[in-house]
Simulated scan of single mutants.
Amino acid sequence: MNDHLPLQGKQVLVTRHKAQARSFGKKIEALGGRPILTSLISFRPAMSSKEASFFQADLEQTDWLVFTSVNGAKFFFSYLEGHGISFSAQHRTKVAAVGEKTARYIRDRHLAVDLVPDLYVAEQLAEALKEKVGQNDKVMVVKGNLGRNVIKDTLAPLGIDISESILYQTVPDSDGILKLRETAKFESFDFVTFTSSSTVHTFMDIMKEDSKKWLEHQTAFISIGPLTKQALDQYGIPSFMPNVYTIDGMLDKMCSISKKGE
């Protein structure tokens, strides 16, 4: 194996949303691999224009604004821009983000981030917020329709005023699903990657028991973090998970597996 191209000759199925999969695919190519991109889910706005004034009023009263994903941050800023809502870096609201990528996206839009947990999972963010949020603080969690209620379930019993704003919906990507069906007829994969539990469920609904046959052909399933791994476990699919729950962590894990199998 070429040490400089640890994924040389490896076929990697990327099931991530197409807007986010391109950079993942380029990194795979840079390591010598061949990415096959099949977007299984897509995202659409969930909050109507009629709710803009109420959203702005709630935002103005918020002491802590919490983002649990990059998608939540993207839809948040898009909604502000689309409805002329002002939210500057000088605003009194503090900001918490579940991971460094989400935090970086927010900072790039000139908004300071006050809290990022060491582990990029909602449970860690909820525990960190318990130490920071005041008893009289108002907390707003920005999320998608499939987002878990971990932060609310953790803070609400403490008497903290917490609300959830559903800014986007996760829906199946019909074009990507069709591509997966066709690709699976003719291709075999060395790695299948998942970056969310919703993608796992969509994938398994399409492939059903056929995916287990891939394990017999030494296909390695790679999950980005604990929740994604748990979703695969539900279907009896073992997977490898990186120590750092990021795309780069997944790449490192695939390179390590490839090196062991050389």
Rank of each mutant, 00 (worst) to 15 (best):
L5P: 03
Q8T: 00
Q8K: 09
Q8W: 07
K10P: 04
V12G: 03
V12W: 05
L13P: 05
L13M: 06
T15H: 05
T15P: 06
T15K: 08
R16N: 02
Q20D: 11
A21D: 01
S23R: 12
S23L: 02
S23T: 01
F24S: 02
G25Y: 00
G25W: 00
G25V: 02
I28T: 01
E29G: 00
A30H: 01
L31K: 12
G32R: 00
R34I: 00
P35R: 03
P35D: 02
I36E: 04
T38R: 04
T38F: 01
T38L: 02
F43W: 06
F43R: 03
P45K: 04
P45T: 06
S49A: 15
S53P: 07
S53T: 15
F55S: 11
T62H: 08
W64H: 09
L65N: 11
T68Q: 09
V70A: 14
G72T: 11
A73V: 13
A73K: 11
F75A: 05
L80K: 14
L80E: 13
L80N: 14
S86D: 13
S86Q: 15
F87M: 13
A89L: 12
R92D: 10
T93V: 14
V95C: 13
A96Y: 08
A97V: 10
G99T: 11
E100R: 15
K101L: 06
T102Y: 12
I106Y: 09
I106K: 09
R109H: 15
L111R: 13
A112C: 07
A112Y: 08
P117Q: 12
D118P: 00
Y120D: 04
Y120H: 13
Y120A: 15
A122H: 04
Q124A: 15
L125N: 07
L125K: 07
L125Q: 06
K132E: 14
Q135D: 13
Q135L: 13
N136D: 15
D137Q: 13
V139M: 10
M140W: 07
V142P: 09
N145K: 04
N145D: 15
N149M: 14
V150K: 13
K152W: 11
K152L: 14
D153G: 11
T154L: 08
I160M: 10
S165P: 00
I166S: 07
V171L: 09
P172M: 08
P172L: 06
D175Q: 10
I177G: 00
L178S: 08
K179D: 04
K179H: 05
R181C: 04
R181P: 00
E182L: 05
A184R: 01
F186Q: 12
T193E: 08
F194P: 03
T195C: 09
F203Q: 05
D205A: 12
D205R: 10
I206F: 03
M207Y: 05
K208Q: 13
D210I: 02
S211W: 13
K212L: 14
K213I: 08
K213S: 05
L215T: 00
E216H: 02
E216A: 11
I222H: 11
I222S: 10
S223K: 03
P226K: 06
T228P: 12
Q230N: 10
A231M: 02
L232I: 01
D233Q: 05
F240T: 04
M241F: 00
N243P: 01
T246Y: 04
M250I: 06
L251H: 07
M254S: 04
C255H: 05
C255A: 11
K259W: 04
K259M: 08
E262P: 12
